[in-house]
Simulated scan of single mutants.
Amino acid sequence: MTRRIVQLLVGLVLYGAGCALTLEAGFGVDPWTVFAQGLSIHTGIGIGWITNIVGFLVLLLWIPLRQRPGIGTVANILLVGTSIQATLAVVPPVQGVVPRIAVFVAGVVSVAFASGLYIGARFGPGPRDGLMTGMHARLGWPVWLCRASVEVTVLIAGWLLGGTVGVGTLVFAASIGPLVHLALPLLDTRRVSSRAALRSSTAGAAVAGDGSGRS
């Protein structure tokens, strides 16, 4: 349990930091961050705080979908946006194409690794992921259609509000799935526990077998 809690918290903070790095790179960001950026432009509220607010509002949409939030859901709402805001406050502006590319790549990789951490902790989905799975359960739509319809909607809305959409948005969309697919098996606490139990039972069997042989 201690490992799972630490993994959840580190994952959510790292996720926000990764999103902030993609923002600093200026090549375009993921749909939800585009939306938060657009709202931030018009309200004057920091992108990170907007991210937290949007997460809470999305959570309200779980009610008609009959979704139940977990500890991870609440922690996601509180920590991701806060981490974005804190990272943007301490990371200086990035100048030059090559440094910006490096920062963008670091941001995408951080988001993928962080996703593996907090999903692998198994404390419940984030509010946005829960919205999509709830739509799937209640409406019967395929998960990919639920995800695409929601993210295209918030992307267009964010772009109309002035959020940054660019080549980075496409790169993020194309790469994040495969990267999370690589990270999750390494960080899934259930699989790690199963492997540890298997090694323990194998070692115990070996010891027992060795003892019976000597007797």
Rank of each mutant, 00 (worst) to 15 (best):
G116M: 05
L184C: 13
V91K: 00
L155D: 01
L179E: 01
Q7D: 09
L61Y: 04
F35A: 11
S115K: 09
R190Y: 05
A20S: 12
T202K: 07
W32D: 00
G44N: 12
V108S: 09
V108P: 09
N52E: 10
L39W: 09
A89D: 10
G124M: 08
A114Q: 07
V80D: 13
R3I: 13
L78Q: 09
G209K: 01
A148H: 13
F113C: 07
T189F: 05
V54Y: 00
G81Y: 09
G134H: 00
L155K: 10
R66V: 11
I71G: 15
T202H: 12
V98T: 15
G126C: 10
G211Q: 15
A106H: 10
Q95L: 13
V98S: 06
V171W: 04
T202F: 15
A206N: 03
Q67D: 03
R100W: 07
R199E: 15
P185K: 02
V108Q: 02
R195C: 01
A106I: 12
V171Y: 08
W49P: 09
V13E: 02
S201T: 12
V152Y: 03
T87M: 06
L88G: 04
W159D: 01
S212Y: 13
V74M: 11
G44W: 12
G140I: 08
E151M: 05
D188C: 10
R100L: 02
I47D: 00
G204T: 07
G124F: 05
G209A: 15
Q7T: 11
F123A: 04
P99Q: 05
L21Y: 08
